[in-house]
Design a protein around this nucleic acid. Structure first.
Lengths: 330, 330
DNA sequence: TTGTATGCGTTATCAG
DNA sequence: CTGATAACGCATACAA
């Protein structure tokens, strides 16, 4: 591995000059610049990013903490974040936040130790208080996806969870359903609670109440098991609202195994718009969650904070209803 | 951010001593060690990983290049690689290889510049010659998943693609099917070609030939479109072999839209064992691809190479048939 | 336009 | 057992 010193010798100049032509900083005579380029070329010189980072205190890296690698949601999140960062000449360092509060905190601190320039986190474990504290004390900007932190609104990229749940539920009601069950996320999850509230509030507006609420963990198996529990309860229902597409898929399987047809016997709607949903049989009605736009916004906000630009607040992202086959009129 | 110098002053010792207690290298009197610990504690000192990496030429990071973030296959790959690396005290730096040869090469070089200790790559673009050259010239160990490179067998983690395709096809034939079509991967992909060969060879062994071969790109949409093309060809077929679960899902949707029942009219089998396949209606028969074991093996092999241990060759991983509902007897 | 010298935060090799 | 001091590779203020 050739270093800057090797280039110096071959080009017959000093480190400072090489550094100048490397970074286009300061004036360099064309002829010497050419000599330097020539030397770099023949040596196959690549600057050592570690040394550069140590000297400049800037790694050109943005950290991303996700709470899972599985599922279309996180795939889209990672892809878009990666592309947005790349477009800005930064790299994305993806870390698994694991499934506990400690592991998420550890992931953050690990990124801090690695001197990333900013951190974007999708958290399912940290409270808004913890996030507020981190935003206050961390040596680098922290952007949160899907958590609203008071006094740090411009660092929060949020989706209108409540509205999405309301829209999904309202659509079921508009199709004549009056007996609606729900599979939502974990008991201790803020967003899961909000979606549940949207569901219940919408029912209440129509003088209805739910036919059972069960909790899953957003994975497909949990939807399957939650739906089995729902069926075991013998509560009659003609429609089901699942808090995400994966759980809806699991639920549809459980309904099928119970001899129930979708949407003939039970209509199903959920949230996310996993691309696979369009190809299922029946295809899945859902609320489109603009995760790519949110990921892009999160990284762009992080980039702005790195540049110490004045950060403009971010819009609240909202979903839109996508009607497919899994919901039928009663 | 407290540095080692701050710790020095507070503890009243030299950098060397602090470094010693930090890394458990050399003898330190218990009392001074305690003083150093105390100082680190009160200052909240965290060693700067960049400086450490610059001095030791070791970043404790392993690079992983994937060719997509989407799909259960890569999710499992990333998760397992991440966990295996973490268990060894290393971090995983995931990079998108993009969809071209150049972008894959760029990802590799980007990781090299970042001084990762080793690189694991799942490539769909690089030829074995290119990989051989990289393995020969790169300053860090390179491990390839799903490509066999001559003279570097111990750096290749491979799946028996051929056998998997044979097993899948043979199962269809064993169920009495004689008119079998195929949706495989891209035309220029080695593995796609191998799977196709396994398919054709197995048919030939039974004096049969295929009822159409179409190419997709492993995404669900491509399976859908490939199957539509197949249907448009008016070739009659009672079974379909798809090179991965995603394309099988897309194909099933296309069959459904054409009024064909799975498995009543057409049986479908594929390769991967995406966890979602078990929950589809009908559930998907497939060949289990042990991607997690392979990811683990890849990272472990990388770790061994970093330690300059003598690397033992790696087994050829093979699949196993998983029979579910999507295949029926003729 | 170019070179010198210093610092970034560690590790590691010496002496003491 | 401990402390100077020289790397590691690069950026940059200051001189020339």
């Amino acid at each position: 591995m050739a270093t800057i010193n090797d280039v110096c010798k071959l080009a017959g100049v000093s480190k400072a000059t090489v550094s100048r032509v490397l970074n286009n900083t300061g004036q360099v005579k064309k002829s010497t610049a050419d000599a330097v380029y020539q030397a770099m070329e023949t040596l196959g010189y690549k600057p050592n990013s570690l040394a550069r980072a140590l000297a400049t205190n800037c790694t050109n890296t943005i950290g991303l903490v996700v709470s899972a690698f599985e599922g279309a949601y996180f795939s889209s999140l990672m892809r878009q974040a990666s592309e947005t960062a790349a477009d800005a000449g930064k790299q994305l360092l993806i870390m698994d936040g694991g499934h506990s509060e400690e592991s998420e905190l550890q992931a953050i601190h690990s990124l801090v130790e690695r001197k990333v320039d900013a951190i974007v986190i999708y958290t399912r474990q940290l409270s808004t208080e913890q996030l507020a504290q981190l935003m206050r004390t961390l040596p680098v900007p922290l952007i949160a996806i899907n958590q609203m932190v008071e006094n740090f609104e411009s660092r929060c990229i949020c989706f209108n969870q409540y509205q999405a749940a309301c829209d999904a539920t309202a659509f079921l009601l508009s199709q004549g359903h009056k007996q609606v069950a729900c599979i939502t996320g974990p008991d201790n999850s803020t967003n899961s609670g909000i979606r549940l509230r949207g569901f219940n509030d919408t029912l209440a507006q129509h003088q209805l109440s739910h036919c059972g609420v069960y909790h899953g963990n957003y994975f497909i198996q949990s939807g399957y098991h939650a739906c089995q529990a729902l069926l075991d309860s013998k509560q009659h229902f003609t429609a089901l609202f699942a808090a995400n597409d994966n759980m809806a898929m699991g639920a549809i399987r459980a309904l099928f195994e119970a001899g129930l047809k979708v949407p003939g016997d039970v209509s199903v709607i959920s949230i996310d718009n996993d691309p696979a949903g369009a190809f299922l049989v029946p295809s899945l009605s859902t609320i489109m969650l603009p995760v790519e736009a949110m990921a892009k916004a999160a990284v762009e906000q992080a980039l702005a904070l790195i540049e110490a630009k004045k950060i403009s607040p971010v819009e609240l992202f909202s979903g839109s209803l996508i009607i497919r086959e899994s919901v039928d009129q009663l």
